[in-house]
């Protein structure tokens, strides 16, 4: 499996091949009608619950719409965006936090995922069992994970006790999530813990596309473990690499649940993120227009990432 290639192109080749039997006009008409009928439910649902909300979100971004409001909604031009970038320090902080989170999570999660994939790809007994263990956090709900780790991070929780015992009591213990300088880092650790198993599997399927003969040839040429990794594994993983980096980046930019369950953006906005702030303003404070504008900023970031992916894979296929 090539982990990545332009979906349009591949799906386009899904078109039925040249028709060998001559079709009558009636056949074609019934095929046309049946085709529409069978695609209609999905198309209709995607239209109403995805495309309309996207368009609506765009339109609402330029209004002062509120969820429940006695006054009629009116267009306000770029006011929401001006407000976000000039008069909303929490937004700015959220944007920085989101970037900081992504900047750490992307390399760490991708790197650890690759290490795990290489380990479970070894031809040794029990590798499958370890693969299962590393994947278990992925099937655990992120809400459960957030609550659980909140307890681990308590001042009298497991992590402080552990640090206390390995430092023979020298560790004073800290309230990880209540300290502005450690809260985001604490959330990064559990986020990687929860999601890295997923990317381990993506890396693994990439590793398994590399022919064993290449390693054999490299060994005959006298390449050691490191040389084999650098000259065979790494180039062979190019398409997988782009996919892993892009999916982690988009997921990291959308950080929400951990924040909502563990810190509500605090202390002093040190863990507020773009999506968290958009939901807080748009839903909890019912400023739908402003919340939509913030969501649009997030969407633009995702689009930029997607375009970067396009660019990186342009010479493929």
């Amino acid at each position: 499996m090539t982990a990545i290639s332009s979906p349009e192109r591949r799906a386009a080749s899904a078109a039925p091949g040249p028709v060998s039997r001559r079709k009558t006009r009636g056949d074609l008409r019934s095929e046309r009608r049946a085709g529409w009928a069978m695609a209609a439910p999905a198309v209709l649902l995607l239209l109403v619950f995805l495309i309309v909300p996207v368009v609506l979100g765009f339109v609402l971004s330029f209004t002062n719409a509120r969820l429940i409001s006695p006054e009629p909604t009116s267009f306000t031009g770029f006011d929401n965006f001006v407000r976000a970038f000039t008069a909303d320090p929490t937004f700015f902080r959220s944007l920085l936090n989101t970037f900081a989170f992504a900047a750490v999570v992307v390399p760490v999660q991708a790197g650890l995922g690759l290490v795990l994939a290489i380990l479970v790809n070894q031809k040794i007994r029990g590798a499958v069992a370890f693969r299962v263990v590393f994947f278990i956090p992925v099937v655990t709900s992120i809400v459960v994970v957030s609550i659980l780790w909140k307890f681990l991070y308590q001042p009298d929780g497991l992590i402080n006790s552990f640090l206390d015992s390995i430092t023979f009591g020298a560790w004073q213990g800290t309230a990880w999530l209540n300290n502005p300088s450690t809260a985001l880092a604490a959330i990064i650790v559990l986020s990687v813990w929860q999601a890295v198993g997923f990317h381990m599997l993506i890396w693994l399927s990439g590793l398994q596309t590399i022919p064993g003969e290449l390693y054999e040839a490299a060994r005959i040429d006298g390449a050691g473990t490191w040389r084999q990794f650098r000259d065979v594994t790494w180039p062979g993983l190019r398409p997988t690499r782009v996919f892993v980096l892009i999916t982690i980046t988009i997921a990291a930019l959308g950080l929400f649940v951990q924040i909502d369950v563990m810190t509500q953006g605090g202390p002093v906005d040190s863990t507020s993120t773009l999506v968290y702030h958009a939901v807080r303003m748009g839903y909890r404070q019912q400023q739908i227009g402003y919340g939509s504008a913030l969501s649009l900023v997030f969407f633009v970031l995702v689009l930029i990432v997607a375009l970067v992916q396009r660019f990186l894979t342009r010479d493929k296929d």
């Binding site: 979906p7 349009e8 799906a11 386009a12 999905a42 198309v43 995607l46 619950f49 995805l50 495309i51 909300p53 996207v54 609506l56 979100g57 609402l60 719409a65 969820l67 988009i250 959308g254 929400f256 999506v275 958009a278 939901v279 748009g282 839903y283 739908i288 919340g291 939509s292 913030l294 969501s295 649009l296 997030f298 969407f299 995702v302 689009l303 997607a306």
Partner: peptide, 21 residues
Amino acid sequence: LGVVIATLIVPFETIAVPMVY
């Protein structure tokens, strides 16, 4: 087909707020 593939790029978080409305 083009529209279906275009929807893959939209994370739910981007439409959650307008969708409530």
